[in-house]
Design a protein around this nucleic acid. Structure first.
Lengths: 213, 213
DNA sequence: TGTACATCAGTGAACGCGCGTTCACTGATGTAC
DNA sequence: TGTACATCAGTGAACGCGCGTTCACTGATGTAC
Protein backbone atom coordinates (compact mmCIF):
# COMPACT_ATOMS: atom_id res chain seq x y z
CA UNK A 1 0.00 0.00 0.00
CA UNK A 2 1.33 3.41 -0.88
CA UNK A 3 1.08 6.58 1.10
CA UNK A 4 -1.24 8.19 -1.42
CA UNK A 5 -4.09 5.86 -0.62
CA UNK A 6 -4.38 7.19 2.86
CA UNK A 7 -6.73 9.90 3.93
CA UNK A 8 -4.42 11.43 6.50
CA UNK A 9 -1.94 13.05 4.17
CA UNK A 10 -2.07 15.24 1.10
CA UNK A 11 -0.31 13.09 -1.46
CA UNK A 12 3.08 14.43 -2.56
CA UNK A 13 3.42 14.85 -6.31
CA UNK A 14 7.11 15.66 -6.60
CA UNK A 15 9.99 13.45 -5.50
CA UNK A 16 11.21 16.27 -3.30
CA UNK A 17 8.10 16.44 -1.16
CA UNK A 18 7.91 12.66 -1.03
CA UNK A 19 11.39 12.67 0.45
CA UNK A 20 10.39 15.36 2.95
CA UNK A 21 7.38 13.33 3.99
CA UNK A 22 9.55 10.27 4.50
CA UNK A 23 11.97 12.26 6.60
CA UNK A 24 9.10 13.51 8.75
CA UNK A 25 7.81 9.99 9.29
CA UNK A 26 11.27 8.67 10.14
CA UNK A 27 11.98 11.59 12.46
CA UNK A 28 8.73 11.01 14.29
CA UNK A 29 9.43 7.33 14.87
CA UNK A 30 12.91 8.20 16.05
CA UNK A 31 11.69 10.82 18.51
CA UNK A 32 8.96 8.48 19.77
CA UNK A 33 11.70 6.20 21.06
CA UNK A 34 12.36 8.70 23.82
CA UNK A 35 9.26 10.83 24.15
CA UNK A 36 5.48 10.70 23.91
CA UNK A 37 3.77 12.09 20.85
CA UNK A 38 2.24 14.79 23.02
CA UNK A 39 5.69 15.66 24.31
CA UNK A 40 6.83 16.26 20.74
CA UNK A 41 6.14 19.68 19.29
CA UNK A 42 5.61 20.04 15.57
CA UNK A 43 8.76 22.14 15.68
CA UNK A 44 10.72 19.28 17.23
CA UNK A 45 9.62 16.89 14.52
CA UNK A 46 10.32 19.29 11.68
CA UNK A 47 13.72 20.20 13.06
CA UNK A 48 14.67 16.53 13.38
CA UNK A 49 13.45 15.99 9.81
CA UNK A 50 15.42 19.01 8.56
CA UNK A 51 12.17 20.53 7.39
CA UNK A 52 9.90 23.34 8.53
CA UNK A 53 6.57 23.79 10.21
CA UNK A 54 5.03 25.25 7.08
CA UNK A 55 6.10 22.23 5.06
CA UNK A 56 4.49 20.01 7.64
CA UNK A 57 1.14 21.72 7.27
CA UNK A 58 1.14 21.48 3.50
CA UNK A 59 1.18 17.68 3.96
CA UNK A 60 -0.94 17.18 7.05
CA UNK A 61 -4.21 18.81 8.08
CA UNK A 62 -3.05 18.74 11.70
CA UNK A 63 -0.54 17.21 14.05
CA UNK A 64 -2.48 14.08 14.96
CA UNK A 65 -2.95 13.10 11.30
CA UNK A 66 0.74 12.20 11.30
CA UNK A 67 0.22 9.60 14.00
CA UNK A 68 -2.90 8.31 12.30
CA UNK A 69 -0.86 7.79 9.15
CA UNK A 70 1.82 5.85 11.01
CA UNK A 71 -0.81 3.73 12.70
CA UNK A 72 -2.72 3.01 9.51
CA UNK A 73 0.49 2.00 7.79
CA UNK A 74 1.59 -0.36 10.54
CA UNK A 75 -1.88 -1.89 10.76
CA UNK A 76 -2.08 -2.51 7.02
CA UNK A 77 1.32 -4.11 7.08
CA UNK A 78 0.34 -6.30 10.01
CA UNK A 79 -2.91 -7.30 8.34
CA UNK A 80 -1.10 -8.39 5.20
CA UNK A 81 1.40 -10.35 7.28
CA UNK A 82 -1.38 -11.98 9.28
CA UNK A 83 -3.18 -13.05 6.10
CA UNK A 84 -0.09 -14.88 4.96
CA UNK A 85 1.32 -16.12 8.25
CA UNK A 86 -1.89 -17.40 9.79
CA UNK A 87 -3.31 -19.19 6.78
CA UNK A 88 -4.46 -22.74 7.54
CA UNK A 89 -2.96 -24.15 4.36
CA UNK A 90 0.43 -22.76 5.20
CA UNK A 91 0.60 -24.89 8.33
CA UNK A 92 -1.10 -28.05 7.14
CA UNK A 93 0.76 -31.11 8.32
CA UNK A 94 2.90 -29.24 10.83
CA UNK A 95 2.41 -29.88 14.52
CA UNK A 96 0.91 -27.41 16.94
CA UNK A 97 4.08 -27.03 18.99
CA UNK A 98 6.02 -25.73 16.03
CA UNK A 99 3.20 -23.55 14.81
CA UNK A 100 2.86 -21.79 18.16
CA UNK A 101 6.60 -21.37 18.46
CA UNK A 102 6.85 -19.88 14.98
CA UNK A 103 3.94 -17.49 15.31
CA UNK A 104 4.60 -16.25 18.83
CA UNK A 105 8.31 -16.02 18.14
CA UNK A 106 7.61 -13.98 15.04
CA UNK A 107 5.29 -11.61 16.86
CA UNK A 108 7.84 -11.02 19.61
CA UNK A 109 10.60 -10.34 17.10
CA UNK A 110 8.39 -7.97 15.09
CA UNK A 111 7.44 -6.18 18.23
CA UNK A 112 11.08 -5.66 19.10
CA UNK A 113 11.27 -3.27 16.14
CA UNK A 114 9.68 0.16 16.39
CA UNK A 115 9.13 -0.08 20.13
CA UNK A 116 8.71 3.67 20.47
CA UNK A 117 5.86 3.77 17.99
CA UNK A 118 4.27 0.73 19.62
CA UNK A 119 4.37 2.35 23.01
CA UNK A 120 2.66 5.44 21.68
CA UNK A 121 0.00 3.42 19.89
CA UNK A 122 -0.78 1.39 22.99
CA UNK A 123 -1.38 4.68 24.76
CA UNK A 124 -3.67 5.94 22.04
CA UNK A 125 -5.67 2.74 21.97
CA UNK A 126 -6.65 3.41 25.55
CA UNK A 127 -8.23 6.78 24.88
CA UNK A 128 -8.78 7.50 21.20
CA UNK A 129 -11.61 5.73 19.40
CA UNK A 130 -10.15 6.03 15.92
CA UNK A 131 -6.91 4.40 16.97
CA UNK A 132 -8.72 1.79 18.98
CA UNK A 133 -10.98 0.89 16.06
CA UNK A 134 -7.99 0.23 13.81
CA UNK A 135 -6.19 -1.83 16.43
CA UNK A 136 -9.29 -3.81 17.27
CA UNK A 137 -9.96 -4.56 13.60
CA UNK A 138 -6.45 -5.93 13.23
CA UNK A 139 -6.68 -8.00 16.41
CA UNK A 140 -10.11 -9.33 15.43
CA UNK A 141 -8.68 -10.50 12.12
CA UNK A 142 -5.73 -12.31 13.65
CA UNK A 143 -7.79 -13.80 16.48
CA UNK A 144 -10.29 -15.09 13.93
CA UNK A 145 -7.56 -16.73 11.90
CA UNK A 146 -5.93 -18.24 14.97
CA UNK A 147 -9.28 -19.74 15.96
CA UNK A 148 -9.56 -21.36 12.53
CA UNK A 149 -6.04 -22.67 12.95
CA UNK A 150 -6.96 -24.12 16.33
CA UNK A 151 -10.04 -25.78 14.83
CA UNK A 152 -7.96 -27.36 12.09
CA UNK A 153 -5.59 -28.81 14.68
CA UNK A 154 -8.29 -29.79 17.16
CA UNK A 155 -6.67 -33.07 18.12
CA UNK A 156 -3.44 -31.43 19.18
CA UNK A 157 -4.73 -29.22 21.97
CA UNK A 158 -7.13 -29.40 24.88
CA UNK A 159 -9.33 -26.38 24.33
CA UNK A 160 -12.94 -26.75 23.32
CA UNK A 161 -13.84 -23.08 22.99
CA UNK A 162 -11.33 -22.16 20.30
CA UNK A 163 -12.68 -18.64 19.89
CA UNK A 164 -12.07 -17.95 23.57
CA UNK A 165 -8.69 -19.65 23.45
CA UNK A 166 -7.61 -17.55 20.47
CA UNK A 167 -8.82 -14.36 22.16
CA UNK A 168 -6.98 -15.23 25.35
CA UNK A 169 -3.83 -16.13 23.48
CA UNK A 170 -3.94 -12.72 21.86
CA UNK A 171 -4.43 -11.06 25.23
CA UNK A 172 -1.55 -12.95 26.79
CA UNK A 173 0.97 -12.40 24.02
CA UNK A 174 0.10 -8.82 23.17
CA UNK A 175 -0.42 -7.97 26.82
CA UNK A 176 3.12 -9.01 27.66
CA UNK A 177 4.60 -7.40 24.55
CA UNK A 178 2.72 -4.13 25.03
CA UNK A 179 3.90 -4.09 28.60
CA UNK A 180 7.48 -4.70 27.48
CA UNK A 181 7.14 -1.78 25.08
CA UNK A 182 6.06 0.44 27.97
CA UNK A 183 8.84 -0.52 30.33
CA UNK A 184 11.62 -1.02 27.77
CA UNK A 185 15.06 -2.19 29.02
CA UNK A 186 13.93 -3.13 32.51
CA UNK A 187 10.63 -4.94 32.73
CA UNK A 188 7.69 -4.18 35.02
CA UNK A 189 9.49 -5.70 38.00
CA UNK A 190 12.87 -4.16 37.29
CA UNK A 191 14.34 -7.30 35.79
CA UNK A 192 16.20 -7.34 32.50
CA UNK A 193 14.92 -9.93 30.05
CA UNK A 194 16.23 -10.06 26.50
CA UNK A 195 13.74 -10.19 23.65
CA UNK A 196 14.87 -13.76 22.98
CA UNK A 197 14.31 -14.93 26.53
CA UNK A 198 11.00 -13.14 26.76
CA UNK A 199 10.01 -14.69 23.46
CA UNK A 200 10.96 -18.16 24.67
CA UNK A 201 8.91 -17.80 27.84
CA UNK A 202 5.97 -16.47 25.87
CA UNK A 203 6.13 -19.48 23.56
CA UNK A 204 6.22 -21.71 26.60
CA UNK A 205 3.24 -19.95 28.17
CA UNK A 206 1.23 -20.15 24.94
CA UNK A 207 1.99 -23.83 24.43
CA UNK A 208 1.12 -24.67 28.00
CA UNK A 209 -2.10 -22.70 27.85
CA UNK A 210 -3.22 -24.65 24.79
CA UNK A 211 -1.98 -28.11 25.58
CA UNK A 212 -2.11 -28.60 29.33
CA UNK A 213 -4.86 -31.03 30.37
CA UNK B 1 -0.86 5.15 56.18
CA UNK B 2 -2.38 8.57 56.43
CA UNK B 3 -2.30 11.33 53.90
CA UNK B 4 -0.07 13.51 56.06
CA UNK B 5 2.90 11.20 55.67
CA UNK B 6 3.11 11.87 52.01
CA UNK B 7 5.31 14.46 50.44
CA UNK B 8 2.93 15.36 47.64
CA UNK B 9 0.36 17.25 49.66
CA UNK B 10 0.39 19.96 52.30
CA UNK B 11 -1.27 18.22 55.23
CA UNK B 12 -4.73 19.57 56.09
CA UNK B 13 -5.07 20.65 59.71
CA UNK B 14 -8.80 21.30 59.87
CA UNK B 15 -11.55 18.80 59.21
CA UNK B 16 -12.94 21.09 56.55
CA UNK B 17 -9.84 21.05 54.39
CA UNK B 18 -9.45 17.31 54.94
CA UNK B 19 -12.92 16.87 53.51
CA UNK B 20 -12.08 19.12 50.56
CA UNK B 21 -8.96 17.09 49.89
CA UNK B 22 -10.95 13.87 49.95
CA UNK B 23 -13.48 15.31 47.53
CA UNK B 24 -10.66 16.31 45.18
CA UNK B 25 -9.19 12.82 45.27
CA UNK B 26 -12.56 11.19 44.68
CA UNK B 27 -13.44 13.58 41.89
CA UNK B 28 -10.15 12.86 40.16
CA UNK B 29 -10.65 9.12 40.27
CA UNK B 30 -14.17 9.56 38.96
CA UNK B 31 -13.08 11.76 36.06
CA UNK B 32 -10.22 9.38 35.23
CA UNK B 33 -12.84 6.77 34.38
CA UNK B 34 -13.60 8.69 31.22
CA UNK B 35 -10.62 10.88 30.49
CA UNK B 36 -6.85 10.99 30.72
CA UNK B 37 -5.23 13.00 33.48
CA UNK B 38 -3.83 15.34 30.85
CA UNK B 39 -7.31 15.78 29.46
CA UNK B 40 -8.50 16.96 32.86
CA UNK B 41 -8.00 20.62 33.67
CA UNK B 42 -7.51 21.67 37.27
CA UNK B 43 -10.77 23.55 36.80
CA UNK B 44 -12.56 20.36 35.80
CA UNK B 45 -11.35 18.56 38.89
CA UNK B 46 -12.18 21.39 41.26
CA UNK B 47 -15.61 21.86 39.75
CA UNK B 48 -16.37 18.14 40.10
CA UNK B 49 -15.14 18.31 43.70
CA UNK B 50 -17.27 21.39 44.40
CA UNK B 51 -14.10 23.28 45.27
CA UNK B 52 -12.00 25.96 43.63
CA UNK B 53 -8.68 26.27 41.85
CA UNK B 54 -7.22 28.35 44.66
CA UNK B 55 -8.14 25.71 47.22
CA UNK B 56 -6.42 23.13 45.06
CA UNK B 57 -3.16 25.05 45.09
CA UNK B 58 -3.15 25.49 48.84
CA UNK B 59 -3.01 21.68 49.08
CA UNK B 60 -0.86 20.73 46.12
CA UNK B 61 2.35 22.32 44.79
CA UNK B 62 1.20 21.54 41.26
CA UNK B 63 -1.22 19.48 39.23
CA UNK B 64 0.90 16.34 38.89
CA UNK B 65 1.39 16.06 42.66
CA UNK B 66 -2.24 14.99 42.86
CA UNK B 67 -1.58 11.97 40.66
CA UNK B 68 1.61 11.17 42.54
CA UNK B 69 -0.43 11.12 45.74
CA UNK B 70 -2.99 8.74 44.28
CA UNK B 71 -0.25 6.48 42.98
CA UNK B 72 1.68 6.46 46.23
CA UNK B 73 -1.48 5.61 48.12
CA UNK B 74 -2.45 2.73 45.85
CA UNK B 75 1.09 1.35 45.89
CA UNK B 76 1.31 1.44 49.67
CA UNK B 77 -2.01 -0.33 49.92
CA UNK B 78 -0.89 -2.95 47.43
CA UNK B 79 2.40 -3.47 49.23
CA UNK B 80 0.63 -4.06 52.52
CA UNK B 81 -1.74 -6.49 50.84
CA UNK B 82 1.12 -8.32 49.14
CA UNK B 83 2.96 -8.69 52.44
CA UNK B 84 -0.04 -10.46 53.90
CA UNK B 85 -1.36 -12.33 50.90
CA UNK B 86 1.92 -13.71 49.58
CA UNK B 87 3.40 -14.86 52.87
CA UNK B 88 4.75 -18.42 52.75
CA UNK B 89 3.32 -19.31 56.15
CA UNK B 90 -0.13 -18.29 55.10
CA UNK B 91 -0.18 -20.93 52.38
CA UNK B 92 1.69 -23.73 54.10
CA UNK B 93 -0.02 -27.06 53.50
CA UNK B 94 -2.23 -25.77 50.70
CA UNK B 95 -1.69 -27.04 47.20
CA UNK B 96 -0.31 -24.98 44.35
CA UNK B 97 -3.49 -25.14 42.29
CA UNK B 98 -5.51 -23.43 44.98
CA UNK B 99 -2.82 -20.90 45.77
CA UNK B 100 -2.57 -19.78 42.16
CA UNK B 101 -6.33 -19.61 41.82
CA UNK B 102 -6.66 -17.54 44.97
CA UNK B 103 -3.87 -15.09 44.20
CA UNK B 104 -4.57 -14.54 40.52
CA UNK B 105 -8.30 -14.37 41.19
CA UNK B 106 -7.74 -11.78 43.87
CA UNK B 107 -5.53 -9.67 41.62
CA UNK B 108 -8.10 -9.70 38.85
CA UNK B 109 -10.88 -8.73 41.22
CA UNK B 110 -8.82 -5.93 42.76
CA UNK B 111 -7.94 -4.66 39.34
CA UNK B 112 -11.61 -4.51 38.41
CA UNK B 113 -11.92 -1.64 40.89
CA UNK B 114 -10.51 1.76 40.03
CA UNK B 115 -9.93 0.89 36.39
CA UNK B 116 -9.71 4.53 35.39
CA UNK B 117 -6.89 5.22 37.80
CA UNK B 118 -5.13 2.03 36.73
CA UNK B 119 -5.30 3.02 33.11
CA UNK B 120 -3.77 6.38 33.85
CA UNK B 121 -1.01 4.85 35.97
CA UNK B 122 -0.12 2.34 33.28
CA UNK B 123 0.31 5.28 30.93
CA UNK B 124 2.54 7.13 33.38
CA UNK B 125 4.71 4.10 34.01
CA UNK B 126 5.65 4.17 30.37
CA UNK B 127 7.06 7.68 30.42
CA UNK B 128 7.55 9.07 33.90
CA UNK B 129 10.47 7.80 35.97
CA UNK B 130 8.98 8.65 39.36
CA UNK B 131 5.82 6.69 38.62
CA UNK B 132 7.77 3.85 37.11
CA UNK B 133 10.07 3.61 40.13
CA UNK B 134 7.12 3.21 42.48
CA UNK B 135 5.43 0.62 40.28
CA UNK B 136 8.64 -1.31 39.79
CA UNK B 137 9.32 -1.35 43.53
CA UNK B 138 5.89 -2.82 44.15
CA UNK B 139 6.23 -5.41 41.39
CA UNK B 140 9.73 -6.37 42.57
CA UNK B 141 8.35 -6.99 46.04
CA UNK B 142 5.50 -9.21 44.86
CA UNK B 143 7.65 -11.07 42.35
CA UNK B 144 10.20 -11.75 45.09
CA UNK B 145 7.55 -13.14 47.39
CA UNK B 146 6.02 -15.26 44.64
CA UNK B 147 9.45 -16.72 43.91
CA UNK B 148 9.80 -17.70 47.58
CA UNK B 149 6.35 -19.25 47.40
CA UNK B 150 7.36 -21.23 44.34
CA UNK B 151 10.51 -22.42 46.10
CA UNK B 152 8.50 -23.60 49.08
CA UNK B 153 6.22 -25.60 46.80
CA UNK B 154 8.99 -26.87 44.53
CA UNK B 155 7.56 -30.34 44.16
CA UNK B 156 4.24 -29.08 42.85
CA UNK B 157 5.42 -27.35 39.69
CA UNK B 158 7.82 -27.92 36.86
CA UNK B 159 9.87 -24.77 36.84
CA UNK B 160 13.51 -24.75 37.87
CA UNK B 161 14.20 -21.04 37.56
CA UNK B 162 11.64 -19.79 40.06
CA UNK B 163 12.80 -16.18 39.83
CA UNK B 164 12.18 -16.19 36.10
CA UNK B 165 8.88 -18.00 36.53
CA UNK B 166 7.67 -15.47 39.09
CA UNK B 167 8.73 -12.59 36.86
CA UNK B 168 6.96 -14.10 33.88
CA UNK B 169 3.85 -14.81 35.89
CA UNK B 170 3.76 -11.17 36.90
CA UNK B 171 4.20 -10.12 33.27
CA UNK B 172 1.42 -12.40 32.09
CA UNK B 173 -1.13 -11.49 34.72
CA UNK B 174 -0.45 -7.77 34.92
CA UNK B 175 0.04 -7.59 31.17
CA UNK B 176 -3.44 -8.92 30.55
CA UNK B 177 -5.01 -6.86 33.32
CA UNK B 178 -3.30 -3.63 32.26
CA UNK B 179 -4.47 -4.28 28.75
CA UNK B 180 -8.02 -4.87 29.97
CA UNK B 181 -7.84 -1.56 31.82
CA UNK B 182 -6.86 0.17 28.57
CA UNK B 183 -9.59 -1.35 26.43
CA UNK B 184 -12.35 -1.52 29.07
CA UNK B 185 -15.69 -3.07 28.05
CA UNK B 186 -14.52 -4.56 24.78
CA UNK B 187 -11.13 -6.22 24.87
CA UNK B 188 -8.23 -5.72 22.47
CA UNK B 189 -9.92 -7.85 19.81
CA UNK B 190 -13.37 -6.36 20.27
CA UNK B 191 -14.70 -9.27 22.31
CA UNK B 192 -16.56 -8.82 25.56
CA UNK B 193 -15.16 -10.86 28.42
CA UNK B 194 -16.48 -10.41 31.94
CA UNK B 195 -14.00 -9.91 34.76
CA UNK B 196 -14.95 -13.35 36.05
CA UNK B 197 -14.31 -15.12 32.77
CA UNK B 198 -11.10 -13.23 32.21
CA UNK B 199 -10.04 -14.11 35.72
CA UNK B 200 -10.82 -17.79 35.16
CA UNK B 201 -8.77 -17.89 31.97
CA UNK B 202 -5.91 -16.07 33.66
CA UNK B 203 -5.93 -18.62 36.45
CA UNK B 204 -5.87 -21.37 33.86
CA UNK B 205 -2.99 -19.78 31.99
CA UNK B 206 -0.99 -19.27 35.19
CA UNK B 207 -1.57 -22.84 36.36
CA UNK B 208 -0.63 -24.28 32.99
CA UNK B 209 2.48 -22.14 32.78
CA UNK B 210 3.69 -23.45 36.13
CA UNK B 211 2.63 -27.04 35.96
CA UNK B 212 2.80 -28.20 32.38
CA UNK B 213 5.68 -30.61 31.74
C1' DT C 1 16.64 24.91 -26.88
C1' DG C 2 14.72 28.79 -24.63
C1' DT C 3 11.24 31.53 -22.38
C1' DA C 4 6.93 32.36 -19.73
C1' DC C 5 3.86 30.77 -16.62
C1' DA C 6 1.53 27.67 -13.31
C1' DT C 7 1.81 24.83 -9.65
C1' DC C 8 4.30 22.54 -6.06
C1' DA C 9 7.25 22.96 -1.98
C1' DG C 10 9.27 25.15 1.65
C1' DT C 11 10.29 29.01 5.22
C1' DG C 12 9.85 30.89 9.85
C1' DA C 13 7.86 34.72 12.24
C1' DA C 14 3.47 35.90 14.25
C1' DC C 15 -0.99 34.72 16.13
C1' DG C 16 -4.15 33.02 19.45
C1' DC C 17 -6.10 29.61 22.43
C1' DG C 18 -6.03 26.65 26.42
C1' DC C 19 -4.68 25.72 30.74
C1' DG C 20 -1.50 25.70 34.79
C1' DT C 21 -0.48 28.89 38.20
C1' DT C 22 -0.73 33.18 40.95
C1' DC C 23 -2.71 36.64 43.73
C1' DA C 24 -5.53 39.97 46.22
C1' DC C 25 -9.20 39.31 48.81
C1' DT C 26 -13.14 37.22 51.94
C1' DG C 27 -14.68 34.00 55.30
C1' DA C 28 -14.08 30.25 58.98
C1' DT C 29 -11.81 28.20 62.81
C1' DG C 30 -9.06 28.10 66.73
C1' DT C 31 -6.66 30.24 70.77
C1' DA C 32 -5.23 33.48 74.41
C1' DC C 33 -6.68 36.08 78.28
C1' DT D 1 -18.35 33.84 78.35
C1' DG D 2 -16.71 37.32 75.40
C1' DT D 3 -13.41 39.71 72.54
C1' DA D 4 -9.18 40.24 69.74
C1' DC D 5 -6.09 38.23 66.93
C1' DA D 6 -3.66 34.64 64.22
C1' DT D 7 -3.85 31.15 61.13
C1' DC D 8 -6.27 28.13 58.07
C1' DA D 9 -9.26 27.65 54.04
C1' DG D 10 -11.42 29.05 50.09
C1' DT D 11 -12.64 32.14 45.87
C1' DG D 12 -12.30 33.15 40.99
C1' DA D 13 -10.49 36.57 37.92
C1' DA D 14 -6.15 37.61 35.71
C1' DC D 15 -1.64 36.34 34.05
C1' DG D 16 1.62 34.22 31.07
C1' DC D 17 3.77 30.44 28.76
C1' DG D 18 3.85 26.81 25.37
C1' DC D 19 2.57 25.04 21.29
C1' DG D 20 -0.58 24.13 17.31
C1' DT D 21 -1.74 26.59 13.39
C1' DT D 22 -1.68 30.34 9.89
C1' DC D 23 0.13 33.32 6.52
C1' DA D 24 2.82 36.28 3.47
C1' DC D 25 6.54 35.33 1.05
C1' DT D 26 10.62 32.94 -1.62
C1' DG D 27 12.37 29.24 -4.33
C1' DA D 28 12.02 24.85 -7.26
C1' DT D 29 9.94 22.01 -10.66
C1' DG D 30 7.32 21.04 -14.54
C1' DT D 31 4.90 22.23 -18.96
C1' DA D 32 3.40 24.65 -23.15
C1' DC D 33 4.84 26.53 -27.43
Amino acid sequence: MSVEDLQWVRAPVQARSRATLDRILDATEKLLEIRTFDQLSVQDICKEAASSVGAFYTRFPDKIALLHLLHERICEEAKATAQLALDVERWRGQNMQDIVAAIVGFMAAEYGQRMGLRRELVRRNGTDDAFRARSVALAALTVGKVAVLLDAHGSEHNRTDTALAADMLNRLVLGVLDQAAQYRETGPAGTVLSVDKLSAELVRAARCYLMAP
